[in-house]
């Protein structure tokens, strides 16, 4: 136990060392270039980050912009999950449904969500609805694919146990298929959240948006404020990392049984 802990600390140390090294290289480069239109110093970026509630560049504060992005990504993420999980259960359960839908899914899946943006604007106009559409598209497929895989990986025996007690099809889906596929669904959610987070920032950079981290970065770019861009990127990175850690922690906590049955 102590050994494991020591090993973990050592691994963290290694990772941290590289992060520190990158920061040092950044800072040295910034000092040498000495032009904050090309590379702001860490101090300048930190200066922006240290005033999270103050208006940035005459607009909303960092926190306000972050909340806008978070709200968008969470809405899109939940819509995608609500669509993809039931559909994935159905596809995994019925080879008939799979035969109908699989080719279309495989065809649509490789298209980057951002490529849909012109259509999205044409259909939904500029604004939140288009952004949501892009996020849902981005988050949808990883959840769907993982849900289908999760259902297909369920042990036949579990289904047989349900049959032995004369479970109805909805009961089988609710009491065996869904919980049995849940660890994989969770993995799908983790992957899709990361993609959704990238999508929201990219989508907010498009013309017509008025808030959000992507918007802030693009706005700061137009004004040549690279320290604000750096600050935005730091927030994006930290939130992405935090979400991933939460999902991993949840997986370890809820699905300790996985692979041990």
């Amino acid at each position: 136990m102590v050994l494991i802990k020591r090993q973990t600390i050592r691994d963290y140390g290694k990772g941290l060392a590289v992060v520190v090294l990158l920061l040092v290289i950044w800072e040295c480069a910034a000092l040498i270039i000495n032009n904050n239109y090309i590379l702001p110093t860490l101090g300048e970026i930190a200066e922006v980050l240290l005033h999270p509630f103050e208006p940035v560049l005459g607009g909303e504060s960092l926190v306000a912009n972050t909340l806008v992005s978070l709200k968008e990504v969470l809405s899109g993420f939940f819509i995608a999950a609500a669509l993809a999980i039931p559909l994935g259960l159905l596809i995994g359960w019925s080879s008939e449904v799979q035969a109908y839908l699989n080719p279309a899914i495989q065809l649509l899946r490789p298209i980057p969500p951002i490529a849909w943006m012109p259509f999205a604007i044409a259909w939904f106009g500029i604004g939140i609805n288009s952004i949501l559409f892009i996020i849902v598209l981005g988050a949808f497929f990883p959840i769907l694919i993982n849900t289908v895989d999760g259902v297909l990986s369920i042990r036949i025996r579990w289904i047989e146990v349900a049959e032995m007690f004369h479970a109805t099809t909805p009961e089988k889906l609710r009491t065996v298929v869904f919980p049995g596929a849940l660890p994989r669904i969770w993995t799908g959610l983790r992957v899709s959240f990361a993609i959704a987070w990238m999508c929201v920032v990219a989508a907010e950079m498009l013309p017509g948006t008025t808030a959000g981290l992507g918007f802030l970065i693009m706005y700061a770019y137009n004004l040549g404020q690279l320290d604000v861009i750096g600050a935005g990127m730091v927030i994006i990175g930290i939130i992405g990392l935090g979400a991933d850690m939460l999902f991993r922690e949840g997986h370890a906590r809820f699905f300790a049984w996985e692979g041990k049955e």
Binding site: E160, F165, H166, G180, F255
Partner: peptide, 19 residues
């Protein structure tokens, strides 16, 4: 072939709770 996501007790009552 126990359901690994259910506790011992929940496994035992599994059949009883079905319609």
């Amino acid at each position: 072939a126990l359901f690994p996501w259910l506790s011992v007790e929940e496994n035992i009552v599994y059949g009883l709770r079905l319609a």
